[in-house]
Amino acid sequence: MKGLISVILIIVSWQAASMLGWLNPYLLPPPSKVLYAFSDEAAGGMLFVHLAASLKRVLSGLSLAFIAAVPLGVLAASSAAIRAYLLPVLEMLRPIPPIAWIPLAILWFGIKGSGASAFITFIAAFFPLFLHTFSGVRHIEEIHLNAARTLGAGRKMLLLDVALPSALPFIVTGLRVSLGFAWMSVIAAELMAATSGLGYMIEMNRSMMNIPNVMCGMITIGATGYIMNDAILRLERRFSWKPERQEE
């Protein structure tokens, strides 16, 4: 609620500043122009086409990252040998920003279709998920492991009834961080390596100096990111077995 007040306040003062001639409308167009660009993009349906294209890439990259990162994280956490082989490699790959993969992604997947941007999204989403799963499983309390073993748990139960549920709050947090990274990276990838998506829409409008439309794309990115984060925060609360914490 208070957040909404700040947003309105910013928009009102921005509009006022523009009307008073304090802002160069060429460099920073007023909200009214951006709003007009919104209705224009929305009416043509292109806004939704681009949004859907970006979302699809994020979801496919994120799902692939989930499928790869969670089992690897569990494996690395439960075996010292796997840890020794895997961690140095991953720690070397991790500092490479997802966008630095774009040249290779274009080479491998081409610029048409979704392959290149989905791949970039996968790279962005993989590491937070892997690290959170890994540390979640590593943080299992000694007493829970001992209890499980003295109650007769075999390997399967140790994994499914102890390790995974114990790590679940970590994994969901990892998912949230990954989604944020993935969303940022998909836009960056689309600036260069796509012919659709919000990033592409921004880049196209930039080349035509349609700054209000560029901002329309930026705001859509921000709002969508906000909604996704909020949804996953709810998920986090739903899947956390920890006693209710005061959030914020």
Binding site: I143, H144, N146, A147, A148, D161, V162, P165, S166, L168, W241, K242
Partner: peptide, 9 residues
């Protein structure tokens, strides 16, 4: 166990 060792989940 002293600290119960129950699975909180």
């Amino acid at each position: 166990f002293q600290e119960y060792g129950l699975f909180p989940w």
